[in-house]
Amino acid sequence: MKPFEYKRPSSLEEACTMLAAQDGRVKALAGGTDLLVQMKQGGLELDALVSLRDVPGLDALHLEEDGSLIMGSATPLGAIENSPDVRRAFPGIAEAASFVGSMQVRSRATVGGNLCNAAPSADTAPILIACGSTAVITDGQADRTVLLEDFFSGPGQTVLGPGELLRAIVVPPVPETGFAKYCKSFRSAMDCCTVGVAVYSDFVPGSAVVRDLRLALGAVAPTPIRARAAEAMLVGQELDEALTDRASLEAVADALPISDLRASAAYRKVLVEVLSRRALTAARAWAERGAVA
């Protein structure tokens, strides 16, 4: 590793000022589980790291009164996975967090880091996109918000400008009629995801009729994406087996996977269909069990 400055600001304002300096050869350090690997082995050279460790409020994790979930960007994935609130109100998010790396990695790795590294395979992205989450971005003075699905601009790239920091993720409340789940394919019990599919579905009470639905795909395009054609096919319809099959096949149309070590593009397309079907089938089973009522 090349030498770099290590800075540890104690306020958001200070952190953003530090991040604005040094011509972009500076990065925020949260858990470091991705960043350190890039610096040690990936040839990433930086002039400075800005540690978020002592910035207050960035690891806040709580439910608002309206039921929405606020996750400070530096909240460790382990804290999300183990939070009784998250497990109760957003079990799909808790489960997706538990899929990331190992227990050790999740002690350090943060939700903000997982998103800001903007790997197409980031495990938290599809479920948070499916749930309609918003990214709260700050420049140290004021906040702006973007829908999380618009947060990513390419592999390893986000809409964050110089001196900007992802401050928090806000997940809107899931109504009693809503269900969310993330399905992941991996080669071994600890792996980056080969393909990830998340569904959020809101049903007409007492039925399997879809009122609102988002289907998000990971690791099949330069950024996490939504399978909009499949979504359009589903909204307003009763989710039965035949529709599940058709929509799952349709989801493949939005996928633009590449071939890499983890899988070929063709295999990834198969997985998009299979995992979409599994996610939608889980949603249908949930609705039919009467979980809505």
Binding site: A189, D191, R262
Partner: peptide, 23 residues
């Protein structure tokens, strides 16, 4: 070990999978 033009592509445990406890 996967190679392209003789270069090993999976030179880390992330990509060269050995069985872990869950496998």
């Amino acid at each position: 070990l996967v190679r392209q033009e003789g270069k090993v592509q999976n030179d880390r445990f992330l990509d060269y999978k050995i069985p872990n406890i869950g496998d």
